[in-house]
Design a protein around this nucleic acid. Structure first.
Lengths: 324, 324
DNA sequence: CTGAAAGCGCTTACAG
DNA sequence: CTGAAAGCGCTTACAG
């Protein structure tokens, strides 16, 4: 038999569809007898309410759009896993939008999500200039990204992270540590802290930005060029992959680590935490970030009036390895 | 104004909703005049068809459920990214189900996906015994997993991968290479190849399985115990994280790599390919696996009659690093 | 070439 | 305590 519908359950139980619906939603008064008969009919037919029809009426799809650069990146993979778990616990489903570093795709996804009547959005891309968020008229939460329009931001404590990393490099004897980051815009708190710490020690900052859309091989080439050009004796990479590239370059060029070059990364996703204990890195609370973002968007859906004070940044932690 | 609906567009253009719908779907004959007026009204109102209402009528949600152990694992993160891109290109949306190693959650998700009328499912968990797939009555594609019930499997060439890894270890002089894998069941082609190659060289196989649900620290402890117990001079780990654990253990215990211990991993996800060029590993065609799974499920949705011959396994590649 | 009407599978006031 | 009817926002035969 084809998928049973409400009508079939009603016929089987000998009641109206209204009544079945009420049993389903546990709404209004119902005699035990009816309740039991309907329940039996549901079980016998293996009936499951059609979520699409429900969404149409309730004007709530139960879907949350989750927009990320790409889950192929371990940081975002771990983040999305945490977001998904948080959302599932609150009864929401995750519509994944993996848009790479492409602002066009992000704008398309934003459109698609609204057409699909998602109840809310969690976004964590780095694309600047995608302004469509501001007139989206639904709960949005950003992760470590300024979107504008009063959209709350969940993030790790980048100021502290940047400070810990830089101070650590200096404490280990570096005098010319270079900062390698994706983009050096004013919202980059890790870079801001690096500059502050360098200044407070009377050292000149060396900041290099490879750009988010730069291919991986090109990025590696840039990193290698910068490291030799700047005669760096330390690297603070604002992501672990870049830190690993620096490590590899040191091996290739016969430099000792940490003797000649001290290396500190950032993020501390699972593969780094468990597989590369030697890498000194700033560990972000990835699971907490994801869970908080999920809770926040669910809160705002369920209570749109709720005031959302600025989110305090979540604590990061410097893990020491042998690279520094 | 609230979100405009078909009715509003029709009123503005001075036509019926039927006509607007036809313009939207480019269906039937339409005068250029009407087409233009409706188009203008759509633009002026910023109208976007409600995907939920469409799904209800068409009985096609355009959603595909993607079930994975967890996207926090780089292999699955990269796989899901590829699946998502493939699906998006075919016009489908990705409903992400991140169920960890929990068979219960997987069964729940399977239920939820059907309630949400997904058009198809791509699954890649390792849970055995979740049999509900067989009576799901919708297109399903598995990635590197036997689900049963004639469900097609997209996978890398595990036999060749296992053979390459094992032969390489032996070629490098290992005489007691141990296989460390998640589960040593009969469907494990990597293990089968390992055994074959060992046998053909007259060597006794040493297989150790840590189990999917084992915690990461416990797994590390097991790996370390096994390596010392078996007096291994080589390791074939069927995933890269485990290979990295072996590497770490060698460092900790003062063994030289590859002198005392040759190490080969498996998977070659982005972080390993780009960040750890030193690890010898079998690189899976992760992007191709994802894309193929996406195309296959889309094909089966769009042409249910289509015969699906067994999928040929996709080629893997042994990358040489300094660990072997 | 265009429109009125029925219907996708549910929920929810409103009666009774 | 239960049911008939309207309606969520669309699409699609069927008329004209």
């Amino acid at each position: 038999m084809a998928r049973p519908k409400l009508h079939d359950v009603a016929a089987r139980a000998g009641v109206s569809v209204t009544t079945v619906s009420r049993v389903l939603n546990n709404r209004g008064y119902l005699s035990d007898d009816v309740r039991a008969r309907v329940g039996a009919a549901i079980d016998e037919l293996g009936y499951r309410p059609d979520a699409i029809a429900r969404s149409l009426i309730r004007r709530r799809s139960g879907l949350i759009g989750v927009i990320v650069p790409t889950v192929a990146d371990p940081f975002f993979g771990e983040l999305v896993a945490a977001i998904e778990h948080g959302l599932a616990e609150r009864g929401y489903k995750t519509l994944l939008c993996d848009c790479q570093e492409n602002p066009e795709r992000e704008a398309e996804y934003l459109d698609l999500l609204q057409a699909n009547r998602v109840d809310g959005i969690v976004t964590s891309t780095h694309n600047r200039g995608v302004t469509a968020y501001e007139d989206a008229d639904l709960p949005i939460v950003a992760v470590d990204r300024r979107v504008g329009g009063g959209i709350p931001i969940v993030r790790g404590d980048n100021r502290t992270g940047g400070r810990l990393a830089t101070e650590h490099l200096l404490a280990r004897g570096a005098r010319a540590p270079v900062l390698v980051t994706a983009t050096d815009h004013e919202g980059n708190d890790r870079a801001a802290s690096y500059r502050e710490v360098m200044a407070s020690h009377g050292l000149a900052p060396r900041v290099r930005a490879y750009g988010y859309s730069t291919g991986i091989d090109e990025r590696r080439a840039l990193v290698e060029t910068w490291l030799s050009e700047t005669a760096a004796d330390g690297v603070f990479a604002t992501d672990d992959l870049t830190a690993l590239m620096a490590l590899e370059w040191a091996h290739k060029t016969g430099r000792s680590v940490p003797g000649d070059l001290r290396i500190v990364g950032y993020d501390g996703s699972a593969v780094v935490r468990w597989g590369m204990p030697g890498l000194t890195t700033v560990i972000q609370p990835i699971a907490r970030l994801g869970r908080r973002a999920a809770d926040l968007v669910a809160d705002r859906i369920e209570d749109p009036e709720r005031l959302t004070p600025a989110e305090p940044p979540l604590p990061v932690e410097l893990r020491l390895g042998w690279t520094s």
